[in-house]
């Protein structure tokens, strides 16, 4: 139940994403075209409505903000030119900053491992990414057959590619974290 309405969230999302959630008239086009709608707990048009209503906690703890793959079907189809996927990016960033408990814990862990890999070597190395993700998520045993198959096909390079300008890359991470 929504008892109080506050414009704070709508303002913050607009400032950070540049998107005017207030322009939404709930046509639902974003949700009908969404390929991930079957797996979402809050549909994209409802996300925008809840932003208007200031329902921050519900949004930041939703599964939807992590399930959205940013395929941007919603973004290009919105009749009010709201980049819906960008609004969801902002909500994900807020969820991480505020330490909200994610409804789907593995997805933010994956992103953390992906970025950790770049911070360390400058480029993604699939064995490093898979190793860190499997360790942190505890999902140790899935896809082992697949990994063996990929190794046999020469699709996995065991030695990571290192960027010479790693210090520059690390500085980007350090300053972006502030």
């Amino acid at each position: 139940m929504i008892h109080t309405l506050t414009p704070d969230l709508e303002r913050e999302v607009e400032r950070r994403s540049g998107q005017k959630a207030r322009n939404c008239f709930q046509c639902g086009k974003c949700s009908t075209g969404c390929l991930f709608n079957f797996a979402m707990d809050i549909l994209p048009h409802q996300v925008i409505k809840l932003v208007q209503y200031g329902q921050k906690e519900r949004l930041l703890s939703s599964g939807t903000i992590w399930i959205c793959a940013s395929c941007e079907t919603c973004t290009v189809r919105c009749p009010n030119e709201i980049e819906v996927a960008r609004v969801i990016d902002t909500l994900r960033q807020m969820a991480l900053e505020e330490g909200a408990v994610p409804a789907d814990r593995k997805i933010p862990i994956f992103h953390k491992c992906f970025l950790g890999n770049i911070a360390a070597t400058g480029r993604i190395s699939e064995p490093v990414l898979m190793g860190s993700y499997k360790t942190l998520s505890g999902d140790l045993f899935s896809d082992i057959g697949l990994a063996v198959n990929m190794l046999a096909k020469g699709k996995i390079k065991l030695i990571p590619q290192m960027v010479k300008g790693r210090r520059e890359v690390r500085r980007i991470f350090k300053e972006a974290a502030r």
């Binding site: 960033q93 970025l115 770049i118 993604i124 960027v163 890359v169």
Partner: peptide, 19 residues
């Protein structure tokens, strides 16, 4: 160096532009 891909823009806007 890596562009940051989806994990970049989904979690940190400044990083997603700077990479």
């Amino acid at each position: 160096s890596c562009c940051g891909a989806s994990s970049g823009h989904m979690t940190n806007h400044l990083l997603s532009v700077a990479l």
